[in-house]
Every structure is written in C-alpha cells, then in structure tokens.
C-alpha cells in the first residue's frame, strides 16, 4: 500500500456522476455563504475557496479546499483536504489533512459538498487559537509517501472546536 488513494482515481460511476451533476446545479443556485467554487469540467475534483467568517480569528483570510470524489460517491466519502497553505487550526495538519469525523467514520450519503463546507467553516469559526494539532510533525512525516487522510485511523478530537 503506497496509499495514494487509489479508489478516488477511478472513474466516477454513473450514479456518482449523476449525483454530482445535481449537487453542482444546487451549488450554483444556492451556494453556501463564504465559499466560491470555480466550476471546471472536472466533476471528480472540486477546488473551493473558503473565506474566513467575519468576527472570527480567520476573518479576511482565504483558503482553498480540494474535494476528490471516489468512484462510489456518495456511498463512499469524498476526500477533503486544504491546499497549501492550510489554515492554522488545532484540527488541521500542515499538510492540509483535516480531523473531522464526518469526512471519515461519520460520513453519510445524506451529506453533500455544501454541508461538508458548512461543517468545515463552523469548525474554523469556533477556534480561538491559531495552532497546529499536537501531533502535527509526527503525522505529517508519516504522510510523506502521499497517503490519503482516508487511510488514517482517526482519533477524533473533542467537538468543541
């Protein structure tokens, strides 16, 4: 296992394509506030700009999320990471991996790209300190071979932040 998320490289299934086209339309009609998705012809990888909410320690800052969809989306979770530079946050590693349960164990097909974005913004907004997770260096070193965060056995931090 060299671990570069082989499953997400496979072509989207018909159901996944169909579902993502609908999500895209919904996004265009009703985009979550604080996010900008530059629509490309690549349905399998979305790059979304995130704007730090007013009144939070990330106000005025802009980050980029990269969302990769697996062949069997939405039965399988998408892979969501921050592109460099990732926001300084106790649950976000410097390589952009995010420790958030809904991206892994608690993923459900009931969720959407839009609802993921809202959860991530809420996670950012509730943080009071700009710092990396305690185990950042160890974790990032361990990911150097290009491992996907979906191959990590996450131990979830408290949900207050």
């Amino acid at each position: 296992m060299t671990g570069s998320s082989a499953s997400s490289r496979k072509v989207l299934s018909k159901i996944a394509t169909n579902r993502l086209q609908k999500e895209l339309v919904e996004w265009q009609v009703n985009p979550p506030s604080g996010f900008l998705h530059k629509v490309t012809d690549n349905l399998q990888r979305w790059v979304i700009e995130v704007y730090g909410a007013q009144g939070t320690i990330y106000a005025g800052e802009k980050y980029q999320l990269q969302v990769d969809f697996p062949e069997h989306y939405p039965m399988e979770a998408p892979q969501v990471i921050f592109l460099h530079p990732a926001p300084l946050h106790p649950h976000i590693y410097s390589n952009g991996h995010i420790c958030l349960d809904i991206l892994y164990d608690s993923w459900s097909p009931a969720m959407t790209v839009s609802s993921i974005c809202i959860s991530i913004l809420s996670m950012l907004s509730s943080s009071t300190v700009k710092e990396r997770p305690e185990d950042n260096d160890r974790y990032v070193k361990n990911c150097r071979n290009g491992r996907s965060p979906k191959e990590t056995r996450w131990w979830f931090h408290d949900d207050k932040v």
């Binding site: 296992m1 671990g3 892994y104 164990d105 305690e134 185990d135 160890r138 974790y139 070193k141 361990n142 491992r147 191959e151 990590t152 056995r153 996450w154 131990w155 979830f156």
Partner: peptide, 23 residues
C-alpha cells in the same frame, strides 16, 4: 470501532503504521 479508542499520545506514528493496521 477502534479508531475511536486509538490514543495518539500512547502510539508513536513512526512505529504505528495505520496503513498496515487498516489493511
């Protein structure tokens, strides 16, 4: 259900390969 029990403090990432465990 082990991911929830996994204690980051007790297990050094370097001798604890998630990919092996997950495999």
């Amino acid at each position: 259900h082990q991911p929830h029990d996994h204690d980051v403090n007790d297990n050094d990432w370097s001798n604890y390969k998630d990919s092996d465990v997950m495999q």
